[in-house]
């Protein structure tokens, strides 16, 4: 028997997975390369949300992983651990955000270069142009 917390939890996970599915669908099926790049950023952002969910705790007096007491003893550390969220998933996320930005910059520059070469960003038209070029050579 599921309580109200579990029902909400299932609903939230389904929404997250649906977001990921939409992003993957756009990444595969939409023809424009800039649309593909935007869908890739959405996919990465949804994975950050998944990581944040894995580290979260569903209780009310909950605090971030930053200790405000700078000269702690054993009792204050135990109290802090009883309220804090998990610090490991955000650590893995921080570098991912910045690296994702740099990779998106690389992809956007490559897309502009592709437009200079082929005159279009539609992958189907690019495939047709490549086929014509190959046919003309033979």
């Amino acid at each position: 028997m599921m309580g109200i917390g579990e029902v909400f939890w299932l609903y939230i996970w389904l929404i997250i997975m649906a977001n990921m599915g939409l992003a993957i669908y756009g990444l595969i099926m939409r023809p424009n390369i800039l649309k593909k790049i935007a869908c890739l950023t959405v996919l990465a952002d949804t994975s950050f949300i998944v990581l944040a969910f894995i580290g979260y705790r569903f209780k009310y007096p909950v605090s971030p992983y930053i200790m405000t007491n700078w000269a702690p003893n054993n009792a204050t550390i135990t109290h802090f651990i009883s309220e804090s969220v998990d610090p490991l998933p955000p650590t893995l996320t921080i570098t991912a955000v910045v690296i994702n930005l740099s990779i998106t910059i690389l992809l956007v520059f490559l897309a502009i270069r592709l437009y200079e070469v082929y005159g279009t960003l539609d992958v189907k038209k690019i495939a047709m142009i490549k086929k014509e070029l190959r046919g003309g050579e033979k």
Binding site: G55, V62, P89
Partner: peptide, 21 residues
């Protein structure tokens, strides 16, 4: 998504994410 990350209490990720996204 920034609101969602804020409710999930990851302030570092929110700061980086707002700047980037």
């Amino acid at each position: 998504y920034a609101i969602v990350l804020y409710i999930l209490l990851v302030p570092d990720v929110v700061l980086a994410y707002i700047a980037v996204a």
